[in-house]
Simulated assay, not measured.
Amino acid sequence: MTSAYTAYARAFLLTDHRARWVVTETFDILWLCWSSAASSENIRRYAWHLLRSRVMARAHRDAEDRPDLRRGLLHGGSLHRSPG
């Protein structure tokens, strides 16, 4: 799940460093509360909600305090543009 989680986090947080940091933090928290996670109805959903909450806490916000996806799209678009 690390690569999928990191790709999701990168879309909001814009850098590999920030994305990896949040994913590592998520796995650390998951490990610390493993008994709650393991006893949840759906452990994958539990982990996903934990990751999403950590990403959203750090995502850039627009003037209305919503996650600003435009920055990620612009940033990501420049990374994947083909030469020439």
Rank of each mutant, 00 (worst) to 15 (best):
I29Q: 08
Y5E: 10
S3M: 04
M56S: 09
C33S: 11
D16M: 05
T24S: 15
D65P: 07
A9G: 05
L30T: 04
S36M: 08
R44H: 13
E41Q: 09
V22A: 04
Y46R: 07
L74H: 07
D62N: 14
D65Y: 08
H75N: 13
R20V: 07
F12R: 06
L13H: 05
R70G: 02
D28S: 10
S35H: 12
G84D: 05
R71Q: 11
D68V: 02
L14E: 07
T26W: 00
H80Q: 15
L14K: 06
T2L: 12
A4P: 00
S78D: 07
T2V: 12
G77A: 09
A63E: 14
R70D: 11
S53T: 15
G84C: 03
D16W: 07
E41R: 11
D65N: 14
G77E: 02
H75V: 07
G76R: 00
E41A: 14
P67R: 03
E25F: 03
F27H: 10
A9E: 05
R44S: 14
D65C: 07
H60Y: 11
F12E: 02
A4E: 13
A63M: 06
Y46V: 10
A19M: 03
W48N: 15
R66M: 10
A57V: 00
A38Y: 08
I43T: 09
R81H: 14
E64Q: 11
R61D: 02
R58D: 06
A47K: 06
E41L: 12
Y8C: 04
L51Q: 08
S53R: 15
S82Y: 10
R70F: 02
A38C: 10
L79Y: 01
I29E: 11
A9S: 08
L14W: 02
W21K: 13
H60E: 11
L14M: 06
G72Y: 01
R44C: 04
W21H: 13
F12S: 06
D68I: 01
V22K: 04
S36A: 11
C33L: 04
L69R: 08
A7V: 06
D62H: 04
R81K: 15
T24Y: 08
S36W: 06
A7R: 12
R54S: 03
L73M: 12
P83M: 15
A57Y: 02
N42D: 15
W34P: 00
P67V: 04
D16I: 03
F27S: 06
R52V: 13
L32G: 12
V23M: 01
R58V: 00
S39L: 08
S53K: 11
V23R: 03
Y46D: 08
I29S: 01
L73C: 09
M1D: 11
G77T: 05
D16L: 04
L51P: 08
D68N: 14
D16V: 05
P67G: 04
A57I: 01
L30G: 15
L69D: 06
Y8I: 05
I43Y: 03
V55I: 12
F12K: 01
I43Q: 14
W21Y: 13
G84R: 10
C33D: 12
R58P: 02
L69T: 12
D28M: 03
H17T: 13
F27P: 00
R20E: 15
A47F: 01
Y46G: 02
